[in-house]
Design a protein around this nucleic acid. Structure first.
Lengths: 239, 239
DNA sequence: CGGCCGGTTTGATCTGGATCAATCAGGCGG
DNA sequence: CCGCCTGATTGATCCAGATCAAACCGGCCG
């Protein structure tokens, strides 16, 4: 069985920010010991089972979130049910940059998820006293924006084959960034999630992966893929 | 002839920040008189003719920009020349939120453009002394991110008809926001720009607009469109 | 251990939008 | 005022990926 996604699956994160395994990756990486205990005072840990909602588009945005374990699916829906997954959040990711008082998208757990939840008000107050923390938030927002722009290029101008290859390469890079260096690229999300992320149908994603396997670029395993020809995948993702 | 896009086309902006017609709309809206004169000291005004470049993807990011007049096209290219326009910048828009020391996209003038250019270094220094300004930058980044997410939904899941209708409605809203309340929706960008923004071809954009005209939803005029049935357009954009 | 059940794969066919190919229109220089 | 040049429109055809329709597969519960 393939383990869940977490920087160090053997050590549990039980509430103490100073022991947080994703701190250096997260916005909290900018906090010193004193800041951290104040942060801990205003944060609450939440745990969600697969498919439970962190929050829903359109609701009043009471809270901001800091993912500490698992993978979340971020998405928007059209009235008739068409869905666009706008991103997958990993441990260390911050969900709270928003221009209005309502959530602009929905987020729910792909596998079991842990997160720090802070009331928006307490969070705003916390920030106001700590400009260096705001700088950090800004860096995270900038990275997020840059990823979104890359995704626009993908959605608007890449072929199905390029989309799937780009997704695998990008996902692998993000897993590596949080310390998951396993041979196998774990894919906890469903084919439908991937399709909705890439602007494709589930059938096209499935066919494309099968073709990649036939062409010996990868092997489809339970819960993920094993990449055999990383160079070829990277080339497809680039061009 | 249709006038260029500017909040108040009759008053020129000649270098003095305190006389800047877009200040309240821009990141500078958060600055007081003293901040403003320091800002003015480190800013330089640049003017570009149509199709001149503000900056190019991949180059070292020396500067940040604050658009004061005209429209800029922001885009990314694939190695084979496929282009995705990731946005159009209007007066008041800030171009400078980036996660790396290189520009992540290219920007050039659609029509003739004016902008404040600041060295990234001077800008960073300026920010460090002024946390409230950073908050403002953050709000702008959040709005930008939210627009990008909306655009991902459009690119991934909307039909050609919905894309064109959404574009017109969204563009009109942005024009209204900067004070352009004219009956006609000015479209200074080419059909190719619109196509590359919507993930379509120029032919599909053209055909869709002519169909909208045949169906009496709008009239195509030189340099823009006159919207006759705003409700219908809004309905198409929503669903 | 067998029969669901949800997610995935595979196959057959269809179609929205792309591609290829002429016009067409309007601004501009001569 | 004419002819060109660039961008836009319109028409004919094509095809990548969607849709429709079965299997298939693995985990789980009785």
């Amino acid at each position: 069985m393939i383990r869940t996604i977490s920087p160090n699956p053997n050590r549990a994160n039980f509430g103490r920010c100073s022991a947080c395994t994703v701190r250096s990756l997260s916005v909290c990486g900018a906090l010193d010991q004193a800041d951290l205990s104040e942060f801990e005072r205003i944060a609450r840990h939440v745990h969600l089972a697969a498919n439970e909602a962190l929050f829903t588009a359109g609701q009043l945005a009471h809270s901001v979130h800091n993912l500490t374990a698992g993978v979340a699916r971020l998405y928007k829906l059209l009235p008739d049910g068409r869905r666009q997954v706008i991103g997958f959040a990993l441990p260390g990711d911050f969900l709270g940059v928003a221009p209005s008082d309502r959530y602009g998208f929905s987020a729910d757990a792909v596998d079991s998820v842990s997160a720090c939840r802070l009331s928006k008000e307490a969070f705003r107050h916390f920030i106001e006293q700590r400009p260096h923390f705001l700088v950090r938030i800004n860096e995270f927002a900038a990275r997020e924006l840059s990823l979104a722009q890359e995704q626009m290029l993908l959605l608007g101008r890449r072929t199905a084959e390029e989309k799937v290859a780009s997704f695998l390469v990008g996902w692998r890079r993000r897993l590596a960034h949080i310390g998951d260096e396993r041979q196998i690229i774990v894919l906890p999300m469903s084919r439908q999630d991937i399709a909705d992320y890439l602007g494709l149908t589930i059938e096209t994603v499935s066919r494309t992966l099968t073709r990649f396997e036939r062409e010996k670029m990868l092997i489809i395993v339970n819960g993920g893929v094993r990449l055999l020809d990383a160079a070829r995948a990277a080339a497809m993702a680039a061009a």
